[in-house]
Simulated assay, not measured.
Amino acid sequence: MSKRKPLIGVTTSRRSGWRIYPLIALNVWLAGGRSTRWVAGRDADIDAVDGIIIGGGDDISPDLYGGRIVTTARLDPDRDALERGMVLAAFERNKPVLGICRGSQMLNIALGGSLHQDAYATYTSSDHIRTILPRKTVCLEPGTRLAGVAGTAPMKVNALHSQAVDRLGRGLRVAARDTGGMIQAIERVSEPFAIGVQWHPEHLFYAHRQMGIFRALVAAAAARRDVTPQLPKVDATM
């Protein structure tokens, strides 16, 4: 097996990615990997990496899932196209994916799912907390891979989103909900490994449970690099 650290491609916004990418890169490094940044309009070679992270940012265009245009939404169609293509290409090549906030939504949409465009209007009992601090409670679904890598107890996370997963995409299941029932995490049930979380674990690098998410991705990427099954490798990190 290769001693080379797995390389993770990380998609970010052209506008704010310079702030977010260093945090994600730190988490990947702490988890035993290395990373490279991708933005729309520049080369992004899926074949050069062992796994991908779809990062957070602006709302996803409703054109991708049959939603309605909201005039207050800030959209980035070029980034939408890059990330949807990267998710599908990753699955075609059996490469693992971690979706963060917007990235979790894109993971769902790429597999044919849809979003609640105003999630808190639908889930009125959900705590509408907008902060990078861990103040929102999510409950992990028993028996999921996320519960395996991050623990089964309720978890305190941050929240910066207004949209959330509605109809699940192909091959996905719910991995966590908040106390109001809103979906907060999804995961793929078969190879390759894929998890999407609605919060921003990169801001919580000091929390052991959040680092478990990045360790799982890096473990899956190492397995892909070595052409071995990913899910058993992830399960061994639990």
Score class of each variant (00 low, 15 high):
G99L: 01
A222D: 15
N94K: 14
A236F: 00
R130L: 14
D127R: 14
V49N: 02
G169D: 05
N94T: 06
R19Y: 11
S61Y: 02
V189C: 15
Y21V: 04
G171T: 10
T228P: 06
R93P: 04
A110V: 03
L64A: 07
L111R: 14
P229S: 01
V189H: 13
I69Y: 11
V149A: 04
A176K: 06
A207M: 15
Y206F: 15
L231C: 00
K5A: 13
A153F: 11
P77R: 05
H128F: 13
D47T: 13
L111T: 01
L23T: 13
V174F: 11
W18H: 15
P154W: 12
A153T: 10
V70Y: 13
M182Y: 11
G17E: 05
M1I: 12
R19E: 13
A219Q: 01
I183Q: 11
K3P: 12
W38P: 04
D76E: 06
L26H: 12
V97H: 03
T144H: 08
T11V: 06
H128W: 14
A222H: 09
S114M: 09
P96T: 04
I46L: 15
D76F: 01
G99H: 10
R170S: 15
K136D: 08
P154E: 10
I129V: 15
R215V: 02
L204T: 06
L7E: 09
I109H: 08
L140P: 10
Y123N: 07
D43I: 14
S2R: 11
A223G: 08
P229N: 00
P22Y: 13
A90T: 07
G85C: 07
V218A: 02
G32S: 09
R225T: 00
G180T: 01
T152M: 14
I195P: 10
R224A: 15
Q117A: 13
Y206K: 13
A48Y: 10
G32A: 10
Y21N: 05
L146A: 05
G103F: 05
G99W: 00
A119L: 07
Y206H: 15
D118Q: 15
L26Y: 11
T144V: 10
T179M: 12
R74P: 03
G180R: 07
L172S: 08
D78W: 03
Q163E: 14
P6K: 09
L160T: 11
D178I: 06
P154Y: 06
T137Y: 09
A81Y: 02
I100E: 10
D50R: 08
C139S: 15
V234A: 00
N158A: 09
D118H: 15
A159V: 03
S16V: 07
G148S: 11
P77M: 04
R170P: 01
A207E: 15
Q230E: 11
I60A: 02
A40I: 00
N94A: 11
V87R: 03
R74Y: 10
M86N: 04
S114D: 05
L7W: 08
G17L: 07
A236I: 03
L160I: 12
G180S: 00
S125T: 14
G55I: 08
